[in-house]
Nucleic acid binder design. Structure first.
Length: 562
RNA sequence: UGGGGGAUCGUCUAGGGGCAAGACAUAAGAUUUUGGAUCUUAGAACCCAGGUUCGAUUCCUGGUCCCCCAGCCA
């Protein structure tokens, strides 16, 4: 999976892991974990984390757990759990029998909390959330200690027990770590460890009415699982002192170390859960699997391969500086993969009828086409040729600009795998002037592979035989957002203002070659000269629906722009 | 203005007192029955100012700018 010659340099985390292994600082085997919260679907940013965590485990002969960080009963559910598992597997990673849930540790976690109270490291506070906020101080002013901070151990224990029993309403009490209300690091100003929530948890049901916070559950869960390297994103950097404090005062036997890296941001899209939820809930996209979304589900439906995504994550690298990766890199990764794997096929997106006047009416020829010039093992196929064809509207210009190597009145082009044709006439709608059809002649000596087949013409067009072609719908996708960088920061900006109104274009009158009949949902093709397309599950036997994964590089479009 | 991080081509990512490297993107050319792919080539960067040094992008000092933190979210 990783090609050593391609990227000889190693990121700072792998460097650290290698050094730790060398010095035995964390035992003989590296052990990582991917810890999603089941409150949303995975996106390509998660893919980076998955590739990092599972990748490091693979490379260093260690293990990686899949652990659901499900400590908030009000947001999580089972659908997300199964969706996440499906996505991780699809990406190509395997957690074997190491599927864990923080919720499975609730009893152990509770006992840790009891011990913290017994050792004077935690106390029950009875201030309201609002009061706690005020007491916390500000970024520049120290906080004040709660009046309940010095309750006796006995009283704390009694209160905590009653909290568990459900004797109090939500928010009546909270368990807090007793650290330092004057710490310049706000996370150390007696952070909350447990809160009361009379809510049904999707896994533990009504067993509990108090739930641990992330800050409490995460380090202890890591420790319980024997994690050596707990990799997370930059925003947790100033939680690390708390992470370490908790492990220390809990007197655990395994001390994982937290290492932070920069999360992945992609240009022209959004990555935050909040914004993705907004897009889905406000109906700007069609669900979490919308092919315009950077979710794994969306990318999959769009036609991305796991291989391409893994490759992309490798190229993106791992570092600590904030960055926004250009969509072009992701597109490069999928083109690279599909170029060598996707069978070629001819499809006309905007059909223009061509009548070959000197081709016998009713005659049908079967021509041979190569499935993938990059991979001879994919063999050949047959395609029908006849008197009436469709070509792409863009492939004809009545007044051709300079360097236009396609069809125009009096000019010749080759039809791929067929003959050279010359345009002899243009049929127009007398009212609108719109070009309705082209009259052409073909040169019978120029059949592909024939004696005259070597004759040079400036362009080669794709086409389909009108009477044989299959009608199809094609969905073209463009950037979700008009701005290259708005998804990463900019909370203040209204996402709706940035939406690209042309992110989806549906073409309903496309014509594709007959061999596509019966193609299975999800299969990927290159439509010659156009791009890579993936058969959408919306397809029916009578009506194929394709998603454009990514277009081919288009040199002509660049020339024309100038 | 407290604390924690970060700053290298347009975008990512390496490097680390002595030629600043790779990828994507861009441009030019070769080739081509996909204006695809492939190949070749080119341009393109060390946040700023001082200091140390024969030599600083790297070390030191002082700035500047960017990101994160005041949830009983993660």
């Amino acid at each position: 999976m990783s090609s050593p010659d391609q990227n000889p340099s190693i990121d700072f985390i792998r460097t650290k892991v290698a050094a730790d292994l060398e010095s035995q600082a964390s035992g003989k085997q590296v052990h990582t974990r991917f810890p999603p919260e089941p409150n949303g679907h995975l996106h390509i940013g998660h893919a980076k984390s998955i590739c990092l965590n599972f990748g490091i485990a693979q490379e260093f002969g260690g293990l990686c757990n899949l652990r659901f960080d499900d400590t908030n009963p009000t947001k999580e559910n089972m659908e997300y759990v199964s969706s996440i598992q499906e996505d991780v597997r699809w990406l190509g990673f395997d957690w074997d029998n190491r599927l864990f849930f923080a919720s499975d540790y609730f009893e152990q976690l509770y006992q840790f909390a009891v011990r913290l109270i017994q050792t004077g490291h935690a106390y029950v506070d009875s201030l309201t959330a609002e009061e706690i906020r005020v007491f916390r101080g500000t970024l520049t002013e120290p906080g004040k200690e709660s009046p309940h901070r010095n309750r006796s151990i006995e009283e704390n224990l009694a209160l905590f027990t009653r909290m568990r029993k459900g004797e109090f309403a939500d928010g009546a009490h909270v368990l807090r770590a007793k650290i330092d209300m004057a710490s310049p690091n706000i996370n150390l100003r007696d952070p909350a460890l447990y809160r009361i929530r009379h809510a049904t948890h999707y896994r533990t049901g009504d067993d509990w009415c108090l739930y641990p916070t992330y800050d409490f559950a995460h380090p202890l869960s890591d420790s319980l699982e024997g994690i050596t390297h707990s990799l997370c994103t930059l925003e947790f950097e100033d939680h690390r002192p708390l992470y370490d404090w908790l492990l220390r005062v809990s007197n655990v036997s395994c001390y994982p170390q937290q290492i932070e890296f920069a999360r992945l941001n992609l240009g022209h899209t959004v990555m935050s859960k909040r914004k993705l939820h907004q897009l889905v809930e406000e109906g700007h996209v069609n669900g979490w699997g919308d092919p315009r979304l950077p979710t794994l589900k969306g990318l999959r439906r769009r036609g991305y391969t796991p291989e391409a995504i893994r490759n992309f994550c490798e190229r993106v690298g791992v570092a600590k500086r904030d960055s926004v990766i250009e969509m072009a890199l992701l597109e490069h990764a999928i083109r690279e993969d599909l170029n060598r794997s996707a069978p070629r096929v001819m499809a006309v997106l905007h059909p223009l009828k061509v009548i070959i006047e000197n081709y016998p009416v009713g005659q049908i020829e079967t021509l041979e086409a190569i499935n993938n010039p990059e991979d001879p093992s994919q063999g050949k196929r047959e395609i029908p040729f006849s008197r009436e064809l469709y070509i792409e509207q863009d492939d004809f210009r009545e007044d051709p600009p300079k360097k236009f190597f396609r069809l125009s009145p009096g000019q010749e082009v080759r039809l791929r795998y067929a003959y050279i044709i010359r345009c002899t006439g243009v049929e127009k709608n007398p009212d609108t002037g719109e070009v309705m059809a082209l009259r052409c002649t073909f040169d019978p000596d120029t059949k592909s592979g024939g004696s005259q087949s070597g004759r040079k013409v400036k362009g080669t067009l794709h086409w389909v035989s009108a009477q044989h072609a299959l009608p199809a719908e094609v969905r073209l996708y463009d950037a979700l957002l008009t701005q290259p960088n708005s998804g990463s920061g900019g909370e203040s900006q209204d996402l709706r203002q940035l939406l690209n109104p042309h992110s989806l274009t549906v073409l309903s009158d496309c014509q594709v070659e007959p061999g596509l009949r019966g193609a299975s949902s999800g299969s990927r093709f290159q439509f010659e000269r156009q791009g890579y397309f993936c058969l959408d599950p919306d397809s029916t036997p009578d009506r194929l629906v394709f998603n454009r994964t990514v277009s081919l590089r288009d040199t002509w479009a660049k020339i024309e722009k100038k």
